[in-house]
C-alpha cells in the first residue's frame, strides 16, 4: 500500500469522524442551536412540580421560549423554586402565569407560560406570581375515587 494512499484514506476517515461528531453534537444533540444570544431569568414558585426536571422546555402558545435552568426547594415556605431562563427575543407581561403541563398522557413535562395583560414586562430577577402546580395523576385518581365513593354514599343515603 502506497504511503500517500494511506495518508489520504486516514485523512478522509478522520474528517468523516469529525463531521459525524459535529453532526451528532449540533444537529442531533442540539448544541449551539436554540441557544439564544441573550437570556433573562425569572423565578416561579410552585407547591408541586410533579415530574419537572432541569432543562425542561418553557413554552408559550406552543412555542419554545426558554428552559428550566434550576430547581430549588424553599425551606421557609416549603415550595419549589423554579428558575426559568427565557429567550431575550421574547418578552412577557409582568402578570403572566406559569403552569406545569404534560404533553399527552405520558409525554414530557414542560412549563406553559400564559401571557397576562399588564404593560410592564418581566425582566431579569422578576418573580412570576401566578403559578399552577403540576397535576399529580395519583392525586387525581384519588379524588376521582373519593368522589365516586361520596357519590355512592349520598346515593345510599337518599334511598
Amino acid at each position: 500500500m502506497d504511503r500517500k494512499t494511506i495518508d489520504l484514506w486516514v485523512g478522509i476517515f478522520m474528517l468523516m469522524g469529525i463531521a459525524a461528531l459535529l453532526w451528532l453534537s449540533l444537529r442531533v444533540g442540539n448544541l449551539g442551536e436554540d441557544r439564544p444570544s441573550s437570556t433573562y431569568a425569572v423565578e416561579a414558585k410552585f407547591t408541586n412540580i410533579g415530574g419537572l426536571k432541569a432543562k425542561a422546555p418553557v413554552k408559550s402558545a406552543g412555542v419554545l421560549v426558554g428552559r428550566v435552568s434550576d430547581i430549588l426547594f424553599d425551606n421557609d415556605k416549603f415550595q419549589a423554586v423554579v428558575t426559568l431562563t427565557l429567550d431575550g427575543r421574547y418578552s412577557f407581561p409582568k402578570d403572566s402565569s406559569a403552569s406545569i403541563l404534560t404533553s399527552g398522557l405520558l409525554g414530557e413535562v414542560y412549563i406553559g407560560l400564559e401571557p397576562g395583560a399588564e404593560d410592564k414586562k418581566l425582566v431579569q430577577g422578576d418573580k412570576v406570581m401566578l403559578t399552577q402546580s403540576a397535576v399529580v395523576l395519583e392525586r387525581l385518581i384519588g379524588q376521582f375515587m373519593f368522589g365516586k365513593a361520596a357519590e355512592g354514599d349520598t346515593a345510599a343515603a337518599k334511598k
Partner: peptide
C-alpha cells in the same frame, strides 16, 4: 422528526456520555 430529536437529545448527557 428533527424537532422531537432536538427536544429530547441532550448534548451533555447523551452525546458526550456516548463519546
Amino acid at each position: 422528526f428533527w424537532s422531537n430529536l432536538h427536544a429530547a437529545v441532550d448534548f451533555r448527557y447523551d452525546v458526550l456520555n456516548g463519546i
